[in-house]
Simulated assay, not measured.
Amino acid sequence: MHPTHPTHPGRLPPVRLAVRRPSAKRTLDLALGSTLLILAAPALAAAALVLAARRPPGGVVTRSPRVGLGGRVFVLRTLRTRRLRLDVLSRLPHVVRGDLSLVGPEPLPPDAAALPDAPSPAGTITPTGAEHWRLALKPGLTGLAQVRSRSGMPWDEPVLLDQHYAEHHGMRLDLAVLLEAACIPLRRASRGLPGFGKARLSDTDHRRCGYSAVE
């Protein structure tokens, strides 16, 4: 009789590899980040052509080292323009690649995020003791500090806001920050529209037709 399941000497049983599913935050970064990049691509390309024609010192794109998740240092590339927030939108490829998240603490340069004599592996940065929470989060394209620090209140300092985000981050807070970040340029644009704000009416605006000041 032949065995139902023949065995082959020397052959190992198949190994099933566990597939790590992306988190909800990473899924949002990929989906929304890719969509925004596609929509912004024509404007970014046009701005890059205009800048290239002007030949600005240092080139069309700035390159600066920033500290990312786990203290890893990466080069942040930003378009040299602030019109229509294109400088921020030009960082969207970093979101798609995973260097940045849509929402997170501000990406700091190595000299602002580490002690000068802190020992660390090659290509990484060790933050100060008070800011080790930065290691556990990707820096963000925008964040709580960017949308709230303009209030001028003592508790709305960027460092405190970044730390608050690190302690309470989640999808609800991320969506709220993204909504606020989208509303800020819309409010600025609406201030420039004619008729925005209180109507300035003179006395004559309320007078009936045919009224004369001589009466």
Results as ranks from 00 to 15, higher is better:
A40I: 01
D117W: 15
L175V: 09
A43C: 04
A24H: 09
A52R: 15
Y165N: 07
S64F: 04
P57G: 00
R150S: 14
A47F: 11
V73Q: 02
A181L: 07
P110V: 07
H169T: 12
V75R: 14
H5W: 09
T78Q: 11
G33H: 05
G140P: 07
G123F: 11
T35I: 08
Q146M: 14
V147T: 02
E131R: 12
L30R: 09
R21W: 10
R21D: 02
T128L: 10
A31H: 04
R148S: 14
P9E: 11
P13M: 07
I125F: 07
R150P: 00
R172F: 12
P105G: 08
C209E: 15
L144T: 09
L17M: 07
T142W: 06
R97I: 13
P56I: 14
E157Y: 00
L32C: 12
G59E: 04
G123I: 10
T62M: 11
G210R: 15
I125C: 14
L92N: 06
G70F: 05
A40R: 01
A52T: 13
G59M: 08
R187N: 00
V159S: 08
A31V: 14
Y165E: 06
P65R: 10
L135K: 13
A40Y: 00
A213D: 12
L135I: 07
A53V: 15
